[in-house]
Design a protein around this nucleic acid. Structure first.
Lengths: 335, 335
DNA sequence: TGCCGAGCTTGCAACGTTGCAAGTATTGCT
DNA sequence: AGCAATACTTGCAACGTTGCAAGCTCGGCA
């Protein structure tokens, strides 16, 4: 099946090198020769062997995107954006999923072995921290995504979690809500997203002269719908349930919404909800979800650009970029 | 950076071949030599070069999964299942997205060039048909997913769309609904999913002695929430709107749900809804979505297994497998 | 006629790895 | 002591490609 340059060369009666010249459109080939070689190429259905090319050239044209969970809408939407941006630069993206499992993260990212197939890596870690990453053996460039703070010198794109959480909470305060809860705090030190957003939540309350009520801050293990639904049940069981909830992502909010509505309560009348991520689900829920909307296209564009710069030999100091975000006000807070 | 066998060999004072023997844990190496080589390996931080290995062995350990859209929950959930199944067999999955664009589909699937990096391919086509696929140049094995009927001799995993659609529609009939609409019919011959499901819808109605009302069959370009929302608006504008809708996937149903609720109508009291795919969103919507649930794990398991069999040299006739499905009855039809 | 250069084509080596078969010590046995 | 078997190590070649520099042919010009 797979024809090689050598086979084509034999059929055309020329050297391997000449066939290569034709395949790569080098000018120094006589028209007549070129035509003959082209016929042989077509006849054998020659396709260049990408592996051999990669070995020879040191470039595969592939970049890897390593994410915790592909079936989390935020990551799926981000993936789309990264694929689009990479395609503009002629790169193909391959995606892999770690489930936030440190073993798997290490396997995919640290090992040069599989990683060596890729020219670069865009990585959103959950478990791995700066210390782990700094001394990875491979020299493949990496761009980090997400909130996990990394002291090590690596390019990093994140969003200002504290500021965004503050903005979301302030919105609820300005609506006149009195008991504002939060869902998504996290104890585990490796999960910093929750901790940062809690900081912003507290900051907003304090700035408004409000007290932070500990039982209104609900922590969850993950950021899935089920976690939001369970946390909301607990909040509703409080002697004094909240009249607003800031959920640390949209999935939590959608889970919470489900619980609220199934109890016969109304959103936003009884309880106002704010999410985080601006996933499509939240735009089509009833009520639609007020949320923090990070600029995913910008994140993807910057990540790809940063990576390509490194591939082109950019040796400047690692960049730390904060992506833009806005508060999208929808029905879950304003009816 | 990246150390090679040769560099390690020089440092350890042995031949390249011996280092390779140590790296691959071959038994025929003296303990003392092994230790010395191991020290050299550690000192240089040697990582095997996956590209060179692939070129040499003809196996990369990578399989590609090519899908229309990663940010469609059904595909995201399917991807998770495929990654899990492949990992069990020691394979890594790389995912790529075509947007159903024929050019991109061809580029990713037909070209041996990039495809050659992968040992095999699991491909869910939208645009490409059997004729296109039969004469692909590369000999990499392929397993097809999805409803696109492919006459060409390729392994194929699908679900019985007609039967499933019939089951969904029958459910609505048995609930006593009188005007049952359908959303998701498609004109384009390359999009067969819609056409097959319409066949099942019609079959169920006819089996119950009902008439098929043309204006109740709404066609959409895509299967996204926005399409469902728009189609539902049109159905509600009919002189005699439906009292039940079978949507050809859950996203359409969620879009339709949004439209219905925003008009102040109730589900299922005024309009009952059935979806297709059983994505997580539908389990957390309010009301939760009655849906056809294809066995995604089974699909993934079969796809990976079929592919691995081919990689092991299985030359038997191509298989056509129909995956199991069930009807998950939830609130959108039973309150 | 002889030489030069343009135009085209080619062989060699290398990217990093591993299968193969042959190589060298070393040991044990008669 | 001689020989075979054992234990370990090695060089060569190849996977398919491309950079490099050299090779060949031919026409043109002195």
């Amino acid at each position: 099946m797979a024809a090689t340059l050598r086979e084509v060369a034999e059929l055309a009666g020329v050297s391997v090198r000449t066939v290569s010249n034709v395949v790569n459109d080098f000018p120094q080939v006589a028209a007549e020769t070129r035509a003959r070689v082209q016929r042989a190429l077509d006849e054998l259905g020659y396709q260049p062997n990408a592996v051999a090319r990669t070995l020879r050239n040191g470039r595969s044209g592939l970049i890897a995107l390593v994410l915790p969970e592909l079936d989390v809408p935020y990551f799926a939407e981000l993936t789309r954006a990264v694929i689009e941006q990479a395609a503009l630069a002629g790169y193909t993206v391959v995606v892999d999923q770690t489930d936030g499992d440190p073993v798997r993260e290490r396997e995919l990212v640290m090992r040069g072995s599989r990683a060596a197939m890729f020219d670069g890596l865009i990585f959103n870690p959950l478990a791995l921290g700066g210390a782990d990453l700094r001394d990875r053996p491979s020299s493949t460039p990496v761009v980090l995504l997400g909130e996990r703070v990394v002291e090590g010198g690596l390019d990093h794109i994140m969003i200002d979690n504290i500021g965004a959480a503050e903005l979301a909470t302030r919105h609820l305060i300005e609506l006149g809500r009195q008991r504002i809860a939060a869902i998504g705090d996290q104890f585990d030190v490796t999960r910093q997203t929750g901790q940062l957003r809690t900081q912003g939540y507290r900051a907003a309350l304090q700035a408004a002269g409000r007290e932070v009520v500990p039982e209104l801050v609900s922590s969850t293990e993950f950021f899935h719908r089920a976690d939001g639904a369970a946390a909301m049940s607990e909040l509703l069981a409080l002697p004094q349930p909240p009249d607003a909830v800031f959920c640390y992502n949209d999935l939590l909010a959608l889970g919470a919404l489900r619980t609220i509505l199934s109890r016969g309560l109304r959103v936003p009348d009884d309880i106002a909800l704010v999410g985080f991520d601006d996933i499509e689900d939240g735009r089509y829920s009833t009520p639609s979800l007020t949320t923090i909307s990070p600029d995913k296209t910008q994140i993807a564009k910057n990540a790809v650009q940063l990576l390509l710069d490194r591939l082109d030999g950019d040796r400047s100091a690692p960049t730390e970029l904060a992506a833009d975000y806005t508060l999208e006000i929808r029905e879950s807070t304003t009816g």
